[in-house]
Amino acid sequence: MEASFLAAVKVSILAMVVIFTVLIILIFTIKLLVKLIPYVAPPPAPPRHQTVSATSSDQEEHIAAITATLAIHLGKSPSEFRIVNISQN
């Protein structure tokens, strides 16, 4: 096929027009789809963690033990942090 500068320019312009046309059609199609089928947030999953059903004194002991272990592990004083809740799987 004979190739000339002018032919190449014409092909380029034509091709860019086709590309933009195809992709603009896609844009509108996507927008239509998104409008027709909006995102619905899934219902919140039921909580998987249950609070320990221990007596108050049991929980205090657990907190004390964990606080001490963490304090040793982190190299901090137990007064520098506070455990507010314990849960189990």
Binding site: M1, A8, V9, S12, M16, F20, L23
Partner: peptide
């Protein structure tokens, strides 16, 4: 998507360059 289309301009500028360097279409 328009950015993906605009970036194809490189394809066509190169096509013109290739024709100028003697390649067929």
């Amino acid at each position: 998507l328009l950015l993906g289309a605009a970036a194809q301009v490189g394809v066509y500028i190169t096509l013109i360059g290739a024709v100028l360097l003697g390649f067929n279409m």
